[in-house]
Design a protein around this nucleic acid. Structure first.
Lengths: 371, 371
DNA sequence: AGCTTGATTTCAAGCGCTCGCACCCTGCTC
DNA sequence: GAGCAGGGTGCGAGCGCTTGAAATCAAGCT
């Protein structure tokens, strides 16, 4: 690239006592410049415990020398010696899931506050890829692992792999009871409860349900929430109005599936005025199917989703849904692992933390009261 | 965490000739075990140039020894010595822009092939954050930089900052003519041309336009493409039907703005049967405004967007739009920087590459021929 | 026999940093 | 005046790896 030139505000090379010194300024240069040993420089610049004993005059001189020379510590050397990478591994099972974006934003933001940097990997829901990436991350000595298992069909061994990594690990989107891996999830049961409750409060009684794929972790608790509500209010759950999404590795697929299942629902000629979809994608598919069949949403049928992905508020009609606090979940995950890292550093024991975060009903225009 | 236990398939510690050896297996252990020097081990395990001279019998023995001990090279040490990080910095100006997801997927995927790992940063469209992150990435000696400047109002100094980083750098989404920073963009002019052309070919003649914010890089070329088409076909561009998005730091804001501007358009009582939106978000906003005003899309008005974000195909109606090959752009960006890295490694000179990728018309259901 | 050649392997010097272990003061106690 | 406490600083040993230079050895050549 530009091999020289007169730019150099970052002073790449500098001529000094006759010979060209390379761009790299080491701690020893700072030592020489400031008149102290590199030990002292290290202590001061890292604000290590021993820095308490160092008079501020000394500190000042060292800091000024460092700045004057434009000293930047070599992180490779630092890491080699200190065995720390200041890096966190983030493994996502499928980045294209719109659910991920905000979680990622949350992770990034909180990590930024703590001066860690994320290494991002996307497992594409493939076991081999998961393993390769996990190995790569461990080789790089990431200090913690955040796993976004949003849409995960992978066998339980994943968990086993993670457990033996022996660094603080948190899994987002999958409930765990392990004592070695933390978890952050939304309270699916509560959320689903709130969803039916909302429709019910609008007067809907004949409600259709599209449940999640059986093998997906979120499916069961959401259904449980619905059953809870039904039991509590004597709402009738008509088996003819309950359908399940098929398994698929692709999170977007639930759109297509939602569409197909809703067509099926309509075909059954069992009237319904409300529909609780497993997630927003499914809801979008359902809305399209309803529109195609000439049933206007929300006039003739109310639809509620789950997640509140970015597209939901932009949809026509804007989708009523159960919001997962995605950004908050990202923040939470980081807090947990950072706490874990600190615990490891001062050799404290911490056991895994399991957080279940409260969802929130976002009422928009895809639901309306039965008139 | 789990401080011991009988797991240990990864053999964390092993007792040998009486004393506990720590989990860390070094190259010297492999040397001892295989009966060769660590130099030879290094050469073999890295398949360095000199490995040509090493008989395969030796290689075998070393490799087996390494496997037997479960040797994993310490990347800190490797990096310190070799000055390589096998890491690429990715800077995104705003992750929440739905445009980013697929580009990121493309980047990740191609990086994976080349065994680089991405460090992800999200600049939040803030100058200070950009600078801090850039510094952090350079401190970590990332070997290249990929900047996703999708929605970028930041001053030109960003470019200057990047130029002096002196590592291979590519900017996605911003046309450049520099010789030090590469770029990958979609051919906006062509895309916009194709958009009007599509409406025109469907018989639309009174077409409204919502242009991008003046300060956004994409705005001008897209408009140029439209003017080109208008000139070529004598299409009349009615100034009353042309509106500009306001500036905003938030990419999602164009939804809201699209909505407002379309209302304004309707208020003007200047009839139009087609609308070319600056991007998909704007189109979504426009569709909602039209729907609210009782104008059905596409029956009474065709709408076309630009980008083809994930939500477009899920929309009601599915949005006709100009697809940016986002994943391909990500791949391309990685190819460019990887080539750049290789060039630096063998001290070749490479100058910046500027790629303009072809967009693609995605016809869906928000446009229809004028009957 | 002496020398070149090329294949195979090793030596040893760090890369730049941190940290355990002294060391050296100064002031004070006994 | 020897001993001691503790603040302030420096020495030097690596962390585990790669690499240029050099050693070793067998074979080939004159």
């Amino acid at each position: 690239m530009s091999d020289d030139g007169q730019l150099g505000s970052r002073s790449r090379d500098s001529v000094q006592d006759g010979k060209v010194k390379s761009a790299m300024v080491t701690i020893r240069d700072v030592a020489k410049e400031s008149g102290f040993s590199s030990t002292t420089v290290s202590i001061v610049l890292n604000n290590a415990p021993l820095a308490r004993y160092i008079p501020s005059a000394t500190k000042k001189r060292i800091e000024r020398a460092a700045k004057r020379l434009g000293y930047r510590p070599n992180l490779f050397a630092r890491s080699l010696r200190s065995k720390r990478s200041h890096t966190v591994g983030v493994m996502i099972f499928d980045m294209t899931d719109p659910f991920c974006t905000l979680v990622l934003r949350g992770i990034e933001n909180t990590l930024y506050q703590s001066s860690y940097l994320p290494i991002l990997t996307d497992v594409h829901n493939e076991r081999a890829r998961f393993e390769r990436y996990l190995e790569m991350l461990l080789d790089r000595r990431v200090e913690a692992l955040i796993v976004l298992a949003n849409w995960l069909f992978v066998d339980i061994d994943v968990l086993a792999d993670l457990e033996k990594s022996s660094i603080p690990t948190v899994m987002i989107g999958r409930e765990l009871q392990t004592d070695s891996v933390s978890s952050v999830i939304v309270d699916n049961e509560l959320g689903a409860y709130a969803a039916v409750e909302h429709l019910h409060s609008l007067g809907h009684r004949r409600i259709a349900f599209i449940r999640g794929p059986k093998t997906l972790a979120d499916s069961a608790p959401r259904w449980k929430g619905i059953r809870n509500f039904a039991r509590a209010t004597d709402l009738d759950l008509d088996p003819k109005l309950i359908l399940d999404l098929p398994e698929s590795r692709d999170p977007i697929s639930s759109f297509e599936a939602g569409y197909k299942l809703t067509e099926e629902l309509i075909r059954r000629r069992r009237p319904f005025t409300g529909l609780v979809a497993f997630d927003d994608m499914t809801a979008f598919g359902a809305i399209r199917a309803l529109a195609k069949a000439g049933m206007k949403v929300p006039e003739q049928c109310s639809v509620i989703g789950f997640d509140d992905v970015a597209a939901s508020s932009l949809y026509t009609p804007p989708l009523t849904t159960i919001r997962q606090p995605m950004e908050g979940m990202g923040n939470m995950a980081v807090s947990i692992v950072v706490e874990g890292i600190n615990a490891v550093l001062d050799k404290r024991e911490v056991s895994a933390v399991h957080r279940k975060m409260a969802p929130e009903l976002a009422v928009r225009e895809s639901t309306r009261s039965l008139t």
